[in-house]
Design a protein around this nucleic acid. Structure first.
Lengths: 356, 356
DNA sequence: TTTTAGCACTCTTCGCCTCGGAGTGCCAAC
DNA sequence: GTTGGCACTCCGAGGCGAAGAGTGCTAAAA
């Protein structure tokens, strides 16, 4: 999360009163979804100003690009820039109370058979709590710890490789080999790999294998040849490893802001397409905390009118993935931000607890 | 597919001319999505009748419940009953030409690592070809052939069970045991199960295990006790086994018939909910061919305005699952039906080829 | 200098009306 | 049984006016 320094780059200092009015306007717009007029602010903002004065202030804010008027007689609405300033400088986040945190913890701390199952359940949780679309990237395979590897001969030249990762996750891969191996050979290869690499993460394993191969290319004994041929395919980066799970897309259909059916369709297609959003999430992987994209800030056309709130999750100092929500720019940031933040932290805790 | 006998239950005989007009009207409505008036029919249906005569016929068809008029001056639109008659008695299905079939075959005959992957790719295919939402139920686990089973000790009292099914599909399951087993014990148990049950389907295995258990409850030796405890959990019907995959939901957002955002949302929620649709598909499992539900015929409220076309797929005489599409009632049945039909057949072929 | 009251102006929304077009139902004639 | 004719209904587009909301500007007040 960014600090609340009102003199951020590109943001001229606003006096107290102006900030207060902007804050009130954004909050009111988030609540009602209707353009907010000067009378409303004059009456409800608690500043005891006439509507004329408020109008002057609003005109200034429009000039600065924080507000815009849908048409001449319709009050003002925040722009992306307005939301940005609101989020960075005006928003006071209410921390979740401990009861709510407990509920989240219990929902997250369910035994899951796999990373994919975990991701599904957490994105369900996010979407249920925020009533927006929840997104969870699958834990990246490279950062997972290898617990155990086994090989099973299936048929002539087909071997089933089984990886046990993080003690929870099991991944299979059927690999084609150049020659047939018998069970004993495969067992020896597995034993070797387990002894050598058990407890290290996949990335290290791949690197070590490559080094080994380079150094002793020609002098490999029979066992090591077996190991090399099979391990090479086994530890290839899985193509499916960069992926995410979306839940609760239907919530987005309730917002009039997004009622343009065609826009909505494009957004849903982007969820299926995945590449654009994955690119966005990759940027968040090493952000070290909650990150917020308002409207087109994300650089992703289909996200016009949408905001994205993300947080990386991981174990210790290792980032495993990113989770977050997508909703209309007009969302309750003060609630959504802590939910995303806490969910990421709780998930880290739970994964940490499962490490052994 | 039903026969084209025009005297089906509940359907009074219609003379040739009336049938022709109904057929033309339905086809035109499917093409344009606009109510069809008497002038259009008189002009284009090729019968050389005045619009007044056509009006008389249409009034009869409305009386019989095949057509309805959205309002007084808006031409006619088919009712669910009208579509039903059209499909059962009037529709002439154009078989796919061999080029198209070849394209489908190539898309289906991709190596897949698992049933889920296969289901995803086939539902993608269905939705791409028909521009509707494609649905594929995952192959039911009970009907799969057990090729091999292995057990891996993970930690104290946790065992990883690996099932190789149909030589293509690998399933894992982590099971909790009452006492710790060592690798040798597990190996013996696996050997026993493989020798005894390899090549049979899961359903038979479960049944045989239960029988065995009942007959020799007290006299089990140590090996058999091991086998029983572990196998029991391994062969439990997986909860995720009844599931399906949807692709191309976004196509449904293009149809003005479904433009009611709220209806659409409910439909999408039903896709996520799954239970209603699963119930519907279960009915199709043993239908022995293409099955069509028009509008509320399915008994499923959210499917109002939608039709569902399904076909079971399987290997030999064993039904593995159901696939199909969902779209607006106003869909090109003459094309969709053969696509669904052929896809199911091709999938059967491909799965059959992979059996060994 | 800042704030405010007042006023003219703009723009949307709604109801109301009208009008043309599309399509129907019915009747009488063929 | 089929057809032409005609009155009727209904929708949709467009125009009009009133009400309401909100603005910008100006001149006076603080």
């Amino acid at each position: 999360m960014q600090t609340s320094d009102p003199t951020l780059a590109g943001h001229p200092a606003l006096n107290e009163r102006t900030q207060h009015l902007l804050k009130f306007l954004v909050e009111r717009y988030i609540r009602d979804g209707q353009p907010v007029g000067s009378r409303t602010l004059s009456r409800d903002a608690g500043l005891d100003l006439s509507s004329a004065t408020v109008r002057n202030v609003m005109a200034d804010l429009e000039e600065l690009g924080y507000l815009r008027a849908p048409h001449t007689s319709a009050g003002r609405v925040p722009t992306a820039r307005g939301y940005r300033f609101f989020i960075d400088s005006l928003l006071r986040i209410k921390p979740l109370d401990s009861r709510e945190i407990e509920v989240l913890r219990r929902r997250i701390d369910q035994p899951a058979q796999s990373g994919a199952e975990m991701a599904r359940s957490v994105s369900d949780l996010l979407s249920g709590v925020t009533r927006l679309a929840g997104i969870v990237m699958l834990p990246r395979r490279q950062t997972m710890t290898l617990r155990q590897v086994e090989f099973l001969p299936l048929s002539e030249c087909r071997v089933l490789a089984i990886l046990v990762l993080n003690s929870q996750e099991v991944q299979n891969r059927i690999i084609q080999t150049r020659r047939a191996y018998d069970a004993a050979e495969l067992q020896r290869a597995a034993n070797y790999l387990n002894a050598q690499f058990g407890g290290r993460d996949i990335q290290q394993v791949r690197k070590a294998l490559l080094d080994e191969l380079r150094e002793t290319r020609d002098s490999l004994d029979r066992l090591m040849q077996t190991v090399m041929e099979i391990a090479e395919q086994t530890f290839e980066t899985a193509p499916e490893s960069d992926d995410y799970v979306v839940a609760g897309q239907t919530h987005l259909m309730r917002y009039a802001d997004l009622s343009d059916l065609d826009k909505l369709r494009q957004l849903f297609e982007a969820f299926n397409q995945k590449s654009d959003l994955l690119h966005l999430f990759d940027q968040c992987l090493h952000a070290g905390g909650v990150q917020i994209f308002v409207g087109e800030e994300s650089g992703c056309g289909v996200l016009e009118g949408c905001s994205v709130v993300t947080a990386p999750y991981g174990v210790g100092d290792r980032v495993l993935g990113v989770l977050g929500i997508i909703g209309p720019t007009r969302m309750a940031y003060d609630r959504v931000i802590p939910v995303v933040d806490v969910t990421a932290r709780l998930l880290a805790e739970v994964l940490d607890g499962q490490r052994d």
